[in-house]
Design a protein around this nucleic acid. Structure first.
Length: 558
RNA sequence: UGACCCAUGGUGUAACGGUAGCACUACUGAUUUUGGUUCAGUCAGUUAAGGUUCGAAUCCUUAUGGGUCAACCA
């Protein structure tokens, strides 16, 4: 690629950046304000990460700020627990909001807006049941029609609405509706409900309110109150934009503008809160932060770094068409970052004992690099002695042609140690291989090898004398199909039965005793791992973030 | 049967009337004390048909395909 192309590539903007640049260039705004508006009724997932990176990224890039605003207009489903997790996740991703707001902060103001609408004959109290309202609404192909309640006087509406607020009616008895157009081809415009009665306890306003605004009468107004310049949401809200603009115009308030992008979908998982909640409730996973969940907290526990998630959202970009991003890209982003930062350690998952028959002495100290990609990463000391363990799958009695590992009579290097040769296979009564008697080449020591022996394979290993037993959780994709929601039957029919394999007693080099939850490791030739927060000093648990690329396994599968 | 949104390699995304590019994936090969990394390379795309134009992925029309909308959810 030449320099010119590079410059061009750098200039290429997504459609939202183009809108913002145009608005800035025309002088429409001097700086911009965006918001991230989660409803506190569930945990954030990787799809939200896109929205977060987009909203915060836009203001970082172009100047201005981003508010965190909780869209807490439905007290029945919302809870403080979710508020806290959402805040933690955003911070962990590396973003700072300017203000922490709640739609419920604006309930008084929203009430006044409603009064204004009623006073101008643009809203009315409707006594119909929800079934009646649905019936009168028509269908996508047939226009709806108004009922007699739409004819109520301003005075009567004012009185009724105040009575709603004061708790004079039961849930569902009355609603406040905007008087727009029952024949609009846009169903959302057919006199949408603005307020409903809910005698429910709100996580912030307590029992102050008996009525709560609907999304359409809260979201846009909150945007406006905060002077949000660019209100970015997903495509499902396109039809709502007409109401959004109608209300801003009729209320004569700050004209925030709504722009929509297509929500990002990830293959081999589900993203809807309903389905994620089901996975948790029906115990398919251990919780919202189960390392197999696509939630931010799940990804964190799995060992993904904020950097890798931001990189991922960057690479997938934004668009307006339906999409399913391959899980492989997320994994690539994880490896990309982890390769640079992860400390290399050796862990044997399925041990096979190796005895070095010609090794004299108690043992010795060797040195191995913490990270070959990081020149400042330093080294660690590892102990070496006569008895070691290697991976059982690194030995084959009758190896295929391109097998570079250990086999009778064959030689391999032990990483950062010596070259060994397999001389004898020891079996138990049942004929199982239980030990390999090998000889080592004293002059093949790592870094000062004068043996002249050339080996194709290098194995990881641990010292029998001081290795420690740890638990390893090998995680894999949660579903066996790309899009579980798209298949016949229940999405849970497609759960991957092998999404978690637990290795009870893997043998790890002692350096891992010092592992912290924030550490990232590469277990040599195995993959990237991180310490699970459920670990104790005597029982370490490591979660596999992602495997290493394995071209040998791939070749074997063919 | 209505309205709206969308359509570029397997996937995601650029090209803003003028050479279809980038990344991931897949596949070759080189390097390698991780079958990792790194490096070099290969395969692979404008939904279709008309129209406008010297020139169309881009503008227009129609068709086709996908999605959204009939919650007192957001």
């Amino acid at each position: 690629m030449n320099v010119e192309n590079k410059a061009e590539e750098q200039k290429s903007l997504n459609f939202l950046e183009e809108i913002v640049e145009a608005d800035l260039a025309s002088g429409k705004y001097k700086s911009i304000v965006t918001r991230f508006p989660p409803e506190p009724n569930g945990y954030l997932h990787i799809g939200h990460a896109s929205s977060i990176c987009l909203n915060f990224g836009l203001t970082q890039q172009y100047g201005g700020y981003t508010n965190l605003r909780f869209d807490d207009t439905n007290p029945v489903t919302e809870d403080t627990e979710y508020v806290e997790s959402i805040k933690q996740d955003i911070q962990w991703l590396g973003f700072e909001w300017k203000n922490e707001f709640y739609a419920s902060d604006y309930f008084d103001q929203l009430f006044d807006f409603a009064i204004k609408l009623i006073s101008e004959g643009l809203a009315y109290v409707d006594d119909s049941t929800s079934e009646e309202i649905a019936a009168q609404k028509g269908t996508p192909t047939q226009p709806g029609h108004r009922n007699q309640f739409a004819e109520r006087s301003v005075a009567e509406n004012l009185e009724l609405f105040a009575a709603m607020r004061d708790g004079k009616y039961k849930d569902g008895e009355k609603v406040l509706r905007a008087k727009i157009d029952m024949t609009s081809p846009n169903m959302i415009m057919r006199d949408p409900i603005l307020y409903r009665i809910k005698h429910a306890h709100h996580h912030r306003t307590g029992d102050k309110w008996n009525i709560y605004p609907m999304y359409d009468f809260a979201h846009g107004q909150s945007d406006s109150i905060e002077h949000i310049t660019h209100s970015v949401c997903t495509m499902e809200f396109v039809p709502h934009r007409e109401v959004y603009n109608w209300l801003i115009e009729k209320l004569d308030i700050y004209p925030s503008r709504q722009y929509e992008f297509a929500r990002r979908n990830l293959s081999h998982t589900v993203m809807s809160k309903r389905k994620l909640l089901q996975l948790v409730n029906e115990k398919y996973v251990s919780g919202w932060d189960d390392p197999r969940m696509p939630t931010i907290s799940g990804l964190r526990r799995r060992g993904f770094t904020p950097e890798s998630i931001r990189d991922f959202t960057d690479r997938i970009g934004v668009g307006k068409r339906d999409n399913i991003v391959e899980l492989g890209l997320l994994e690539f982003c994880a490896r990309e970052h982890l390769n640079k930062i992860a400390l290399r350690r050796m862990v044997v998952f399925d041990p096979l004992k190796v005895v070095l028959t010609n090794y004299e002495g108690a043992g010795e100290l060797l040195s191995s690099e913490n990270n070959p990609e990081d020149p400042n990463g330093g080294n660690r000391e590892i102990t070496f002695s006569k008895e070691l363990y290697i991976e059982r799958e690194d030995f084959m009695e009758e190896p295929p042609k391109k097998y570079f590992r250990l086999a009778p009579g064959k030689q391999v290097r032990l990483k950062s140690a010596y070259i060994i040769q397999c001389d004898e296979v020891v079996r138990d009564e049942a004929g199982n291989v239980i030990q390999l008697n090998c000889s080592y080449f004293p002059n093949s020591k790592s870094g000062e090898d004068t043996s002249g022996i050339h080996v194709k394979g290098t194995l990881h290993w641990v010292n029998a004398k001081d290795c420690i037993a740890v638990q390893v959780n090998e995680y894999d994709r949660l579903f066996t199909v790309e899009n579980p929601s798209d298949e016949e039957g229940a999405f849970t029919d497609y759960i991957n039965k092998d999404s978690l394999k637990i290795v009870d007693k893997a043998l790890a080099e002692p350096a891992l005793k010092a592992a912290l939850v924030t550490d990232r490791f590469q277990f040599l030739r195995k993959g990237y791992f991180t310490l699970d927060p459920d670990s104790t000093a005597t029982h370490l648990i490591f979660n596999r973030t992602v495997t290493l690329k394995d071209s040998w396994a791939k070749a074997g599968a063919k």
